[in-house]
């Protein structure tokens, strides 16, 4: 199991933090056949800087060190988003429950007392690496829409908030696009749900092909998609949207003769009320999308502040 998970990548790197050189020598020898790359740190300060540099797969952290102790290092690593997800096993000569509980509360994955049984430590190391890989996988899967492979709604909400905050901080431009497949219900009814799925998948592929690596396409729900375009102003975003629009319109559906798919776009570079609230961005883009639908579909509408705020409305589909 471990081997399978590790096989694809280079050897996982383990950062050992302990002020005792005897412990470093012992573990380097005892774990030499475990398929692990060893990196050594002899103090808390060194550990934090090395962890930031190399992002190890696991940290073995001695609790009792002079100057900065293991609790402080653990706290610092967990507080930094860069190192927050690295699993940490505490090593300690103390068997006191208070110390153990404190480590777990600070975010340690495991706690091993010295002198340790090497076989037990090996098992705990591979267990910690396995769990952290599974957590990573789970987090990734929980962010992905299963049909299209794009980010899902939860992922979009999180990323939009991040990007809106970032743009308001840096004054960089930001664009949000809401796009919707035209007459999707008719298409499903007329050609069957597999045809509808094929359109959704093809559209997702068009988004991936047409967008830049730093753009963020997501499935917002049903036949609605949302695209976050960081550092992008209005003319550039309209051009990108038009490429997507043309690509879907030109798509051929040999399995579904006579089928045609198009999409409409609502684009905004500002929130509808000028706030830094991500919900206000969605409202503005939705409004623009509504205008695009009203203008006959298969087109792009850019939100302007002069647009009337449409009260509770439902998209015509």
């Amino acid at each position: 199991m471990n081997q399978d998970l590790n096989a694809a990548k280079a050897l996982p790197t383990l950062l050992l933090v302990d002020d005792s050189p005897a412990i470093h020598r012992l573990l380097a020898v005892k774990l030499k056949n475990e398929g692990i790359d060893f990196v050594a740190a002899y103090s808390g300060e060194e550990a934090i800087s090395v962890a930031n540099d190399i992002k190890p797969a696991l940290v073995l952290l001695d609790v009792n060190m002079p100057e900065m102790d293991g609790f402080q290092v653990l706290h610092a690593l967990k507080a930094d988003p860069e190192t927050h997800d690295i699993p940490i096993i505490m090593l300690s000569g103390d068997d006191e429950p208070e110390a153990k509980v404190r480590c777990f509360e600070l975010g340690a994955m495991d706690y091993v007392t010295k002198p340790f049984q090497v076989a037990e430590l090996r098992a705990r190391i591979s267990n910690a690496i396995r769990i952290s890989k599974l957590v990573e996988l789970l987090e990734k899967q929980a962010s992905i829409d299963a049909l299209t492979g794009l980010g899902n709604r939860a992922f979009f909400d999180r990323r939009l908030e991040e990007e809106v905050n970032k743009a308001s901080r840096t004054s960089d431009s930001l664009t949000l696009v809401m796009c919707d497949l035209d007459h999707f219900k008719k298409l499903n009814d007329g050609f069957g749900h597999p045809a509808g799925d094929a359109v959704l998948e093809t559209y997702a592929q068009i988004l991936k092909d047409q967008l830049r690596t730093y753009d963020i396409p997501c499935r917002y729900g049903g036949e609605e998609f949302a695209i976050i375009l960081p550092n992008t102003d209005s003319p550039a975003s309209s051009m990108i949207c038009d490429r997507i629009r043309v690509a879907l319109e030109a798509a051929e559906w040999p399995k579904y003769p006579g089928m045609k798919a198009t999409s409409s776009f609502g684009v905004t570079n500002i929130s509808h009320d000028g706030s830094h609230d991500s919900a206000a961005w969605i409202t503005a883009a939705d409004q623009a999308l509504y205008s695009a639908k009203s203008n006959g579909r298969n087109c792009i509408h850019v939100f302007e502040n002069a647009d009337n705020i449409v009260p509770a409305f439902k998209l015509a589909g």
């Binding site: 005792s20 002079p66 000569g93 002198p115």
Partner: peptide, 20 residues
């Protein structure tokens, strides 16, 4: 105390349990 602490942690691993 630091030296004793290090010895406690390391000696067992080197097979000197009584020292630990």
């Amino acid at each position: 105390r630091n030296v004793a602490h290090q010895l406690k942690g390391a000696s067992g691993g080197y097979g000197f349990e009584e020292m630990g």
